[in-house]
């Protein structure tokens, strides 16, 4: 009982430049509060971030790599889905 492993958490950091939180790695912690502090200590030592998200790894559901061909290949030959024919106005940022 005492040797029980702490749950695993996935860590997402938003950098100074970016708007999105990017996955940076994982760590062990007993609860969300400790996970955020651990993330601060492990992943923001070199001024990488201004915001941290953590989520328990078990809450993340992933697609199966074996399904890759049926999931992603069909998009391969559908160039018309790319909005490449638009001129972007200058005021539009973060695209």
């Amino acid at each position: 009982m005492n040797n029980k492993e702490w749950p695993l958490w996935e860590v997402f950091i938003r950098s100074r430049q970016g708007l999105d939180h990017k996955h940076v790695g994982s760590l062990h912690a007993v609860d969300a509060e400790m996970a955020i502090e651990n993330a601060r200590d492990v992943y923001t030592r070199r001024m990488e971030g201004v915001s941290i998200w953590v989520v328990e790894s078990k809450s993340i559901h992933a697609s199966n790599p074996d399904d890759a061909s049926s999931l992603y290949d069909p998009a391969n030959d559908k160039a018309y889905r790319h909005p490449t024919f638009y001129e972007l106005p200058d005021e539009l940022r973060h695209m």
Binding site: H28, A29, V42
Partner: peptide, 11 residues
Amino acid sequence: PVLEQDIAISN
């Protein structure tokens, strides 16, 4: 005691 706290106390 664990990697994360090793880093914390070193910080």
